[in-house]
Amino acid sequence: MRPGADFFAAIVGGEDPARVSEAADLAANLLVRGARGTDDPEVAERVLHLAETEGIETIAEVWAGSPADSLAGCLWRLFVVRSWVYADPVAVAREFDAGRRTAQVAQVVAGVAEPPGPEELKTMVDEVLRGIAGSDFADVLFRTAAFARVVATGRARLDDATEADVQRMLVLAEQLEAAGHQELAHGLA
Rank of each mutant, 00 (worst) to 15 (best):
V109K: 06
H49W: 08
A10S: 15
F7P: 00
V128E: 02
V92R: 11
L48A: 09
F142C: 00
V81G: 06
E45A: 15
G34Q: 05
A110D: 04
G73D: 07
E52G: 06
A148E: 00
W84I: 06
R149Y: 08
R157Q: 15
L121A: 02
A44S: 13
T102K: 12
F79C: 00
D160G: 00
L26N: 08
A98T: 06
D160L: 04
I59N: 01
L48F: 09
T102S: 13
E174I: 02
A145D: 07
A68T: 05
L172W: 03
E52A: 15
R149K: 13
A106T: 01
T162M: 06
P17F: 05
D39Q: 11
M124C: 15
H186L: 06
A146Y: 05
A93L: 03
E183Y: 09
M1V: 09
V20W: 01
L121H: 03
A93D: 01
V166A: 09
E183C: 07
E120H: 09
D25W: 03
A138P: 07
L170G: 12
S70I: 02
C74N: 06
V92E: 08
I56C: 05
E127R: 15
A60N: 11
R100L: 03
A189N: 10
S21R: 15
E174T: 11
I59E: 09
E61P: 00
A87S: 15
D16N: 15
P89H: 08
V140L: 07
A51K: 11
P67S: 13
P116D: 03
E174D: 14
